[in-house]
Amino acid sequence: MSSSAGALAHHFANIHQQRTAARLGMWIFLLTEVMFFGGAIATYCIYRTLHPYVFEAAGRELSKPLGTLNTVVLITSSLTMALSVVAAHSGNRRRLLGWLAATMGLGLVFLGVKAIEWYTEYAHHRVPGLNFTPDELGPTAELFFACYFALTSLHALHMIIGLAVMGVLVRLAYQGRLGPERFIPVEVTGLYWHFVDIVWIFLFPLLYLL
């Protein structure tokens, strides 16, 4: 039902201009996201350099298996997202819906595992400002956990936003409003989702492994 003419907004000269604009818009938005996470990650890295031993020891309290599992889950969701873009391009509605649902499912699994980890840290009195109790690592461990919660919660927030956008995409796809003429929404959401994946690719070794 969506033709090239219907997908074209009034102020663009042609559909190519519109698609270029949408893609470029998302890339530039991701540029701001790089600086946003860059600020947080830089904060963490500087503190890690200032307090290497405490941060290393505190990092070992995180669950490496769960972190690895989440990395795998998120990489897989990136794959399914890329496959939904392919399905959108070729106009295969059922496959598009399927891959989008799979991506959302994997995103939810990631958040679920994250919630388990957070709960474990809560149970171990490791949440700053709420129940943090210093042990033999001293007060600086609290700094590590402050950074950890700030970074992972920001990342989780971005995932939730991505899931919400994908919910809209599923709705649009279900109504048949996405297709070979109108695949840009899927494509830019894909860019965003892959970026969120890249952030985690850096957070995982920084927080869990080093």
């Binding site: 700053p128 007060p139 402050a146 950074c147």
Partner: peptide, 21 residues
């Protein structure tokens, strides 16, 4: 955002007592 975490939730990210700067 980090200052809000520190002020609102007590995260202490820039708190020298915890080794923050």
């Amino acid at each position: 955002f980090l200052v809000a975490l520190e002020r609102g939730l007590g995260f202490g990210i820039f708190d020298p007592a915890l080794g923050g700067d």
